[in-house]
């Protein structure tokens, strides 16, 4: 399968296989006017399979969620057909509004206007806990 290269834009690479659509949704890529390509189950030397997202415009993105999903994801910024910058998203100190607390006893379960906030409590093991009830964030239930 051939996906054309992009002139100015972003390539999000090394997404864990099967999670590109989740990112597509969280990054609100469906709202963009530019070209967006999702490549699922691409061959990966390190992981066997990976997903890739290509975005055909130099837009601002909230990279916080990328680090939360997997710090091994790489972001490539493409300018004039060449890779201008490549980086791994860092683990954000807090994640606001992207992950819902699943604890039915948490105050967020009954006060709808409260933002769901998760704080990084263990960087080594990428563990986030709800600011209010300290329930651990489950990465597979974004």
């Amino acid at each position: 399968m051939i996906i054309g290269s992009i002139h100015d834009g972003i390539v999000i690479d090394h997404i864990p296989a099967g999670r590109a659509m989740e990112l597509y949704s969280y990054l609100k890529l469906g709202e963009l006017d530019c070209e967006v390509a999702i490549i699922k189950n691409a061959v990966s030397g390190k992981r066997g399979k990976k997903d890739i997202i290509k975005i055909g415009a130099p837009i601002d993105l909230n990279y916080d969620i990328l680090g939360f999903i997997d710090p091994h994801i790489t972001v490539n910024i493409i300018r004039e057909g060449k890779r201008d910058r490549k980086f791994h998203p860092t683990l954000p100190e807090t994640i606001i509004g992207l992950v819902k607390c699943k604890n039915p006893r948490c105050i967020t379960s009954c006060e709808q206007e409260l933002p769901h906030v998760f704080c990084l409590t263990d960087r080594e093991n990428s563990i986030y806990r709800c600011r209010y009830c300290e329930t651990k964030a489950e990465k597979h239930t974004l």
Binding site: N103, R105, C106, I107, T108, S109, C110, E111, L114, C130, R131, Y132, C133, E134
Partner: peptide, 10 residues
């Protein structure tokens, strides 16, 4: 005192 966890923090 509140039955919901995190209410005093709020």
């Amino acid at each position: 005192r509140h039955p919901k966890e995190g209410a005093p923090l709020v």
